[in-house]
Design a protein around this nucleic acid. Structure first.
Lengths: 105, 105
DNA sequence: AGTTACTGCAACCCTTTAGTTGCAGTAACT
DNA sequence: AGTTACTGCAACTAAAGGGTTGCAGTAACT
């Protein structure tokens, strides 16, 4: 996984409303209309957010009768978390190396 | 750590240029001016990005002579990664529980 | 003391994005 | 078959964000 696929994920997670949506979906799958009943924004706004989240691979959609339900993909979050941890550790490693060189060790 | 402190971190990580800056800082501490020499944006743009990154707690600044150097805080990334993993696992756990209930198990 | 080089602030532009309203389409249920 | 309810598309507004240029301030090296 490169950072080019990672950036949209973070961009998607960088919005409060989308977190509300994800949290609501954490309670169980739901459609845009159902979510609109619980959150203080219109269905269309939620639909846009869901599109962003789906594009980022954080949710998937499934048709159930006449409604389009969304499901949160927690595994994708964990995947992202692993990448983040790896990168953070790498930076720390490199910087401590640089520091040691600077100190002449 | 609540999501209210988490969201700005993700918002900060949701931009390509800021990743370039973080990557550059991963090679060693640098000032906004120094970074401007390596990246295809002006110093002022970089200064704004650094302010965002600092606000999110991803970098810290330190004065060295007349320049203000920035250092990437990899540990903060790892911290964020842990939170992300925890949340993702929680969603997966809840959803599998819901699924089991729905299946009457 | 004078010059140099780095930071800080302000104003501005353009694009993106979060949000809205309104309407058309269409697939389910009765 | 008719109604209901959910989705999809379009146009529009307002605010935020990434980027720029220009200038003032100031601390450091010679």
């Amino acid at each position: 996984m490169t950072t080019s696929t990672l950036v949209p994920v973070f961009a998607a997670l960088g919005d409060e409303t989308r977190w509300s949506i994800l949290a609501a979906l954490g309670e169980g799958d739901a459609s845009a209309s159902a979510l609109a009943g619980r959150l203080p924004v219109t269905r269309q706004a939620i639909a846009k957010h869901l599109a962003v989240l789906q594009e980022a691979g954080l949710v998937e959609s499934l048709r159930v009768g006449r409604e389009l339900r969304y499901r949160v993909l927690g595994s994708q979050l964990s995947e992202t978390a692993r990448n983040l941890d790896r990168i953070g550790a790498e930076w720390d490693r490199r910087l401590s190396t640089i520091k040691q060189i600077a100190e002449g060790l």
